[in-house]
Amino acid sequence: MQTVVITGGTDGLGKGLALHYLRRGVRVLAVGSTPAKGEALLAQAATISAAGRAVFLQADLTSVAATRDLVATVESACSSVDKLILCAQRYRLFGSRTVTREGFEHSFALAYLSRYVLGHGLRTALESAPQPVIMNVATPGVPLGRIHWDDPQLARRYSGFKATLQSFRANDLLGVAFAALHADTPIRYVGYNPGMVSTGMPDHLPQPLRTLTKASFTLLATSVPKAVTPMARLLDEPPGERFSAYRTTRRLPLKGPAFDQADALRLHHLTHDLINAV
Rank of each mutant, 00 (worst) to 15 (best):
E102A: 06
E102P: 00
E102Q: 07
E102R: 06
G103V: 10
G103N: 12
G103I: 09
G103T: 13
G103W: 09
G103Y: 10
G103A: 09
G103M: 08
F104T: 04
F104Y: 06
E105Y: 08
E105K: 11
H106N: 04
H106R: 08
H106F: 06
S107E: 08
S107G: 09
S107A: 14
S107T: 10
S107F: 05
F108H: 01
L110W: 00
L110H: 01
A111G: 02
A111V: 04
Y112K: 00
Y112G: 02
L113V: 07
S114G: 03
S114Q: 02
R115K: 05
Y116R: 00
Y116C: 02
Y116H: 06
Y116A: 03
Y116S: 01
V117N: 09
V117M: 11
L118P: 03
L118A: 05
L118Q: 01
L118M: 10
L118Y: 06
G119E: 07
H120W: 15
H120G: 14
H120K: 12
H120R: 15
G121M: 11
G121D: 09
G121K: 09
L122S: 03
L122H: 04
L122D: 01
L122R: 02
R123Y: 14
R123L: 15
R123G: 06
T124Y: 05
T124V: 11
T124D: 10
A125M: 02
A125Y: 00
L126Q: 04
L126W: 05
E127C: 13
S128M: 13
S128N: 13
A129F: 14
A129L: 15
P130Y: 14
P130N: 13
P130I: 10
Q131T: 15
Q131A: 15
Q131I: 14
P132R: 14
V133C: 11
V133K: 07
V133D: 09
V133S: 07
V133T: 11
I134P: 03
I134H: 05
I134C: 06
I134R: 04
I134G: 05
M135I: 04
M135R: 01
M135E: 02
N136E: 01
N136C: 04
N136V: 04
V137A: 02
V137W: 00
T139G: 12
T139N: 15
G141T: 05
G141L: 08
G141D: 04
V142F: 15
V142Y: 10
P143E: 12
P143M: 09
L144G: 12
L144N: 14
L144H: 14
G145M: 10
G145R: 10
G145H: 11
R146L: 07
R146E: 14
I147K: 03
I147N: 00
I147W: 06
I147Q: 05
H148S: 08
H148A: 11
H148L: 11
W149Y: 15
W149V: 12
W149R: 13
W149M: 13
D150V: 08
D150W: 08
D150M: 09
D151H: 14
D151Q: 15
P152H: 07
P152N: 05
Q153T: 12
Q153G: 06
Q153P: 07
Q153Y: 06
L154C: 13
L154D: 12
L154Y: 11
A155P: 07
A155K: 15
R156W: 09
R156K: 13
R156Y: 13
R157T: 09
R157E: 08
R157N: 12
R157Q: 10
Y158C: 05
S159I: 01
S159E: 03
S159F: 01
S159W: 01
S159A: 03
S159P: 02
G160F: 00
G160L: 00
G160Y: 00
